[in-house]
């Protein structure tokens, strides 16, 4: 079952990869949290921490990066049944933003930690044959 309002609400992140960035970190909470200037949040956050006067600005995350770790999902959740086995990885984009995404357009035996990747827009899920189609980001090798 698709949660249509929550899918729709995440549109800026799913379709346009929007996050935000701390352009001036003024956290008064010395050493108790990991705030730092330049930090990119994806999805965007309201605050680094409650004791911050940090300046957060909207940004679009970098669409190229590298693969930090990955797995090949052999036993998938029901809605991904037709796609298994599929590769899923954690990527660090060039601006430091991190995301979990499927890695597609690559033979499963060619996956490698550190490989360059870039975001492509893909269909992620569908609510059966009659419900809504759900889109977002996957990554492909950036060669």
């Amino acid at each position: 079952m698709a949660f249509i309002p929550s899918y729709w609400r995440e549109t800026p992140q799913r379709y346009r990869y929007e996050g935000n960035k701390c352009i001036k970190c003024e956290c008064k909470h010395d050493s108790k949290c990991d705030c730092e200037t330049g930090q990119v949040f994806f999805p965007p956050r309201r605050t680094c921490c409650p004791w911050c006067d940090c300046t957060l600005e909207p940004c679009t995350i970098a669409t190229t990066g590298k693969l930090l770790t990955y797995t090949i999902i052999v036993v998938p959740p029901t809605q991904f049944g037709d796609e298994a086995p599929y590769a899923l990885g954690i990527c660090e984009m060039d601006d430091g933003a991190r995301l979990t995404a499927q890695i597609v357009d690559v033979p499963l035996d060619k996956l490698e930690i550190g490989m360059p990747v870039r975001i492509e827009f893909r269909k992620i899920q569908q609510d059966g044959h009659a419900g809504i189609l759900m889109y977002g980001y996957k990554v492909v090798p950036n060669s």
Partner: peptide, 18 residues
């Protein structure tokens, strides 16, 4: 941001293992 993309619990721990 994890499950929507196709993550499972074995998958998350598999990424730790890798």
């Amino acid at each position: 941001y994890e499950v929507y993309q196709g993550a499972t619990f074995p998958g998350l721990y598999a990424m730790v293992a890798r």
